[in-house]
Amino acid sequence: MEDEALGKPPQARSAKIQVSHLDFYYGSVQALYNVSLAVPQNQITALIGPSGCGKSTFLRTLNRMSETVRHTSVEGEILLDGENIFSVDLVALRRRVGMVFQRPNPFPKTVFDNVAYGLRVNGGTRGAALADAVEASLRRAALWDEIKDKLHKSAYALSGGQQQRLCIARALAVNPEVLLLDEPCSALDPISTAKIEELMFTLQENCTLVIVTHSMQQAARVSSHTGFFLLGRLLEFNETNILFKRPGRKETEDYITGRFG
């Protein structure tokens, strides 16, 4: 009995990612049940729900990072710009759909080499062009001014918040069309969190963002649309202000008002 509001973007304008009837299994254990959802282009979509509800699993299917775990399988369809992501080249897909992880995971290299990594490995950018690209990415990640003197220091010398923005810069350097963020602020202090939220606003101009968060305040602050997951199902998906002010389902209301176990 899925709502008819589900599966269609609230406003029928350009969906960047269209997910329909997605089931996901870890071995024989089903983790996602019939999830359908449309991610609107150049906006921020937040996914909320109690831990273990499947929101991170769902996020990781969007760039097929879920396949890095053994014995998983997917049924259903995910279209990126109308193209099935399961039939495109995996490496090319991930170049278009970047990801930022829960804990900052900079490589044990210099700041510069971290940002340059994707460009170098994916071929060919060198010299001045590479330096320009690195600077541009760091600027987009609002990190340039803070660390332009530390470009050739180890990335581990940065603070946790800076490391996370460095990871965002690293993802931005390959110019992804979509950026997936898996609880990017869970390991950060409030000031760093605020910086990343600001950053997300500026990024949506030329990028579609999907963020998984355990903080409802964060979802309410940053996103235009929010989906609520419970026990592997997408219970409700709507514009953020509607979902938070007039939730359509009892469970959603219980969760956002904190009455939920």
């Binding site: 396949e67 890095t68 053994r70 995996l90």
Partner: peptide, 23 residues
């Protein structure tokens, strides 16, 4: 569809026809 390509441990998950293509 059997979406099964690579895993962190390098072993393809079971997946039938898709496997040949992903190989």
């Amino acid at each position: 569809m059997g979406a099964s390509a690579e895993t962190l441990t390098g072993k393809p998950a079971p997946g039938g026809k898709g496997q040949v293509r992903t190989f």
